[in-house]
Design a protein around this nucleic acid. Sequence first.
DNA 1: CTGAAAGCGCTTACAG
DNA 2: CTGAAAGCGCTTACAG
Lengths: 341, 341
Amino acid sequence: MNNRRITLKDLAKELELSASTISRALDNHPGISPETKEKVKLKAEELGFTRNSIAASFRKSKTLTLAVIAPRIDIHFHSLVISGIEEYAYKTGYNVTIFQSRDSLKREKKITETLQNNMFGGVVICQASETKAYEHFKKLTKMKMPIVFYDRVPTGLEASKIIINDYESSFLATEHLIEMGCKRIAHIGGSQSTGIFKSRFEGYEAALKKHQLPVYKELVHFTKDLSYDEGVLTANKLLMGQPKPDGIFCSNDYTAVSAIQVFQKKGVKIPEQVAIVGFSNYPISKIIEPNLTTINDRAFDMGQAAAKLLIRQIEEEDDFIQSEIITIKTELLIRDSSRRK
Amino acid sequence: MNNRRITLKDLAKELELSASTISRALDNHPGISPETKEKVKLKAEELGFTRNSIAASFRKSKTLTLAVIAPRIDIHFHSLVISGIEEYAYKTGYNVTIFQSRDSLKREKKITETLQNNMFGGVVICQASETKAYEHFKKLTKMKMPIVFYDRVPTGLEASKIIINDYESSFLATEHLIEMGCKRIAHIGGSQSTGIFKSRFEGYEAALKKHQLPVYKELVHFTKDLSYDEGVLTANKLLMGQPKPDGIFCSNDYTAVSAIQVFQKKGVKIPEQVAIVGFSNYPISKIIEPNLTTINDRAFDMGQAAAKLLIRQIEEEDDFIQSEIITIKTELLIRDSSRRK
DNA sequence: CTGAAAGCGCTTACAG
DNA sequence: CTGAAAGCGCTTACAG
């Protein structure tokens, strides 16, 4: 018994047709008679023929595979985005290959080199936190690889991006605290060398200014990576320092949760004495008690939008478009950690 | 200016060598002089040549891409496993393409059909919860596609698997509660049609029996998918019912967290009055107060092991091995939700 | 509506 | 140590 894979040729011989006809029949090519199509498809099914996609990709020199570079896929936000990418890609017939930069510029560069091997039709990227220069991305652009950035996007590089309005979302979150009566609102922020965290701080600042509230520099703390542990440390500083905050806007949910816990442990009532708002709508925000008010950043939708935009660029439906920036709508989810009425 | 991709031929012409030599030089083939290798590599660098991997894969009819089918990648456990797979694959030069079955058998079947297109060297699978028959997996095996299963593995199908000892881990977790003095230990379990959750229940049962403690059927509750919300419902039943539990072993961390919260809200002291143990070591287990005692299932290591085993099978280092089952060591992480001394 | 033929960019057995 | 040549399995422009 021959264990070789069945090829178009085998089918052709079996049916006394040419390989061209088989190929076209399977493609539902208009210029093939319905009877032939039927016959070919039946035989293909019978012999268990599946097209060798590698050969096809090679021949057509295009692939139906998207690459995704994320810092880490075990961060919930990224896993949601990737889930959204996979969902859209699946429906469109694309595959999704993932790479983790682990926030290392070196590794990110190595990955972008790998991407130059022709295996991918395009790439969705959230850049590593270390990345400040974009030469390696430009190389991809130069070889006409479509790119869509999300979340941490390069500033000052013209490119397609899926973003949220961090400034506005933070402005609204802070304004909500003000409406709840907070006067001394603290901020636990992320690294200010990352654009999105800078915008979140600026949105917070702008809301205070709009309502003529002071921006106490003692109440503004920037962490390295917004981890739970950093949140605990920072919340303790706020707890011990002066002035005492009556509201806290945090740039993510982990630090917000740690703030809730640290203050609660000292008998501070949340939200009565201190109202707290996070950012990202992590699963834990619905579990922590009181439930955390936060910004829903729609990570899954972001992923879907990224895949959709990328595929559109690959298939060049609008080839006069050079780049496109899509802003995803966020929403403020008001929960018990800030609700005072 | 010509925008075509540089090929081996271009390099060959440029250097007045044959394509064969270029190919071998880039491969560090022993039968090529060091000088030539040097020259070729420099030129390749200079012209920005990268091999067309698709052409190479096609020619060699093998690829350096692994497929992963997980129910969902935005579940933390799976994202950790995939992270482990990607990490090992990256180091070995493989790419990782992900597919989500979303626990649908239909979608899982469609994905396995896609896998028959020659694009993948092998596949790591956690089967959909709906899956009870394995014909679609057998088809892959028939066409010699190496498969490694993890977590939810098919029972009664000979195949390579990466598992943990669910029975033993649950036995130890339950025995720990017994050592802490619990006499009426409840169980919040998962669907008993899924092997791993059945084993977890059996381990719990066996520990009680070993220590001559009764298995109250009123204290054993099986949920559909171990969600947080189901945990809340079940914990309320335990709170209201008879007999009153003084310990709870939960088949995952979400239900354990809900149990902590439900009991605490009624003024029950954790761990003094009710000690609680979870399973999986989710991030939330270190955040919830009291911190949750749980089983560390080493999801990341599981992923690394799966990738390693799969790649070994692809490269057929031991071609006399038909299948291999690897059990990952778990550990009981004793934290405050159960520590009574 | 169908077929013959060329060729995508590599790799490798064979020859020298 | 290097090269000429065949061929992997498709797709598609061209011809009829």
